[in-house]
Design a protein around this nucleic acid. Sequence first.
DNA 1: ATATCCTACAACCAAATGGTTGTAGATCAG
DNA 2: CTGATCTACAACCATTTGGTTGTAGGATAT
Lengths: 110, 110
Amino acid sequence: MVVDQLSETELDRLFQALADATRRDIVRRVTIGEYSVSGLAALYAMSFAAVQKHVAVLERASLITKEKRGREQIVRGNHDGLQKARQLLDEYEAIWRQRVERIADILAEK
Amino acid sequence: MVVDQLSETELDRLFQALADATRRDIVRRVTIGEYSVSGLAALYAMSFAAVQKHVAVLERASLITKEKRGREQIVRGNHDGLQKARQLLDEYEAIWRQRVERIADILAEK
DNA sequence: ATATCCTACAACCAAATGGTTGTAGATCAG
DNA sequence: CTGATCTACAACCATTTGGTTGTAGGATAT
């Protein structure tokens, strides 16, 4: 498995994008189905422009993609972004397991 | 498996905390070994107080714990925090897989 | 053609972030 | 006791963030 390099700024953007409840909700919704930007905007108690900004943040973080369809902009979930975030947490998990094993080894040496 | 409720603000703090390269580095390091706050501060090109703030952010996000030992404060990785972040991404992953299956079903129906 | 809908983007504002310096309280070493 | 070390925290500053309103342009429907 080829693990493409996760740049620090890419990770910054990823986790930053996930650090907002509205944006996490958008990610969930557009993974399940298709939404236009205004379709999303209708769901939240904030202005269209505010939702538009959230979508832009998610797009920059590669968590969603936009595709023009007529006068609408269709928002869809992007699996790659999620994978990259998961990848980092998996690495941390691996480090943790190594540590646990090492401690187990030390205890076993006794 | 009991999945304890992930509050939105808890997730905000978690991902927010992970959205900074210095803090991610701290998480890695204190998972591998023990560091005092000043021990950590020595590693980065910023003031002690700045590192102290980063540690506070990580502590609030339950990604690390601090324990007083003499005049030092020992920082350690907290597995629970990481688990919770992973848990959310796993849920998103599950949603994604469901969607892929559903599409496969639709194609199969033809 | 005109009015409506969807989007983009600028300008603005309050609050949060990430950094700084400075002060002060504990703890340890000599 | 004195001095050095480690930590906590306040005050300050520049930048970013998350929201707003307003303006303008492209696509659609009547």
